[in-house]
Computed example of a mutant assay.
Amino acid sequence: MSNKPFIIGIAGGSGSGKTFFLNSFLHHFKQDEVTLVSQDDYYFPAGEMTQEENKLYNFDLPRTIDNEQFLLDIKKLIKGEVIYKKEYNFNNPLAVTKILEINPAPIIIVEGLFILHFKEIAALLDHRIFVEADDSVALQRRIKRDGMERGYPEEDVLYKWHNHVVPAYHEFLLPYKDTCDTIVINNEDTPDQIIKITEEISVVLKDKYCHRND
């Protein structure tokens, strides 16, 4: 690609509604206009773990992420190269792991908990979006998600929340909130509000970056 892509960073704590925001945002673009690279796919393999080991293992630390490979792949996309990445299965032995083909595009979305903490990755972002929700709202979303999608007992979810999730949020994400260009408060599960916000941002970006070669 002759033009440097526009890179959007989307960060938010667990239960902030970041995934719904992200999906709403992507919905406004054609497939060849935007590409997504997610921090979740860069966890170092933790190996097979028992339920108790999984409960105690802290995934909410920057050292659990291969940020060097994460950075390298973002730079490849910027140069117009295709990257191939094994999808992370959240240590679920029953999950079918796919190989992701991530193609370059005029707009690149980088998302994850630590994208603002990783200095070299943060330096590549042209626009930063911070999605947040009240702790009580975020916790209920986390309990529902981890119970339904990952089969975790509520006791384990609460342990991780208080011992891993909240401390990591306050240390590695919240300090960067004021550096963000857009802050989205997502306490109410009202799709209309999020769709409206994402549409407003996407209209500007599509006009500026996706139609520049028309």
Rank of each mutant, 00 (worst) to 15 (best):
D60H: 07
I194D: 08
F20P: 01
D66G: 12
N187T: 11
K18D: 14
Q31C: 07
G12N: 09
P175T: 04
F114H: 13
Y159K: 04
K18R: 13
R150E: 07
I115M: 13
A138G: 09
H170D: 13
K119C: 01
D126E: 09
F70D: 02
K177A: 12
W161I: 07
E87H: 05
L205E: 03
S136W: 10
I99K: 11
D156N: 13
Y57N: 08
G17R: 03
L158P: 00
I7C: 04
N58Y: 14
K119Y: 04
P45E: 13
T19W: 14
I108Q: 06
P175K: 11
K144Y: 08
G13N: 11
H127F: 15
P191V: 06
Q31Y: 00
D178H: 10
P175Q: 10
G80F: 04
R128H: 14
L174H: 12
A123G: 02
Y159P: 03
K196F: 11
E87A: 15
N23H: 14
R128G: 09
S16C: 09
V82F: 10
H127Y: 15
E53C: 05
N89G: 08
H117M: 00
C210T: 15
L72T: 10
I8K: 06
N3A: 12
K86M: 12
R145A: 09
P104L: 10
K98L: 11
P191Q: 10
P191Y: 13
E87G: 06
Q39D: 04
V165K: 04
I185E: 08
I83A: 00
L113R: 06
L94I: 04
K208A: 15
D41G: 02
L94F: 13
I183L: 14
F21I: 11
L94V: 05
G147W: 01
L26C: 04
I201C: 01
D135M: 05
E149Y: 07
V34R: 03
F6L: 06
W161L: 03
V204S: 12
Q140E: 12
D134C: 01
K18L: 07
L139S: 09
D66W: 02
G13P: 11
I99H: 06
V184W: 08
Q51I: 05
A105R: 11
A133N: 04
H127W: 02
L139F: 14
L94D: 13
T50S: 15
L77T: 03
F21S: 09
K160V: 05
L94K: 13
P5K: 08
L124F: 11
H162D: 09
I115H: 03
P5G: 10
P5W: 01
F6A: 05
N103K: 15
E149C: 11
D32F: 07
H211A: 12
V131Q: 02
F59K: 15
N213H: 05
N213R: 12
N91T: 09
K85S: 08
K196P: 01
Y209V: 11
N67P: 03
E111D: 13
Q51M: 07
A11C: 14
I143W: 00
V37K: 00
K208R: 14
N89P: 07
K208Q: 15
F70M: 07
I195W: 11
V137Y: 08
Y42T: 05
N103P: 03
E53V: 00
G47S: 08
F59H: 15
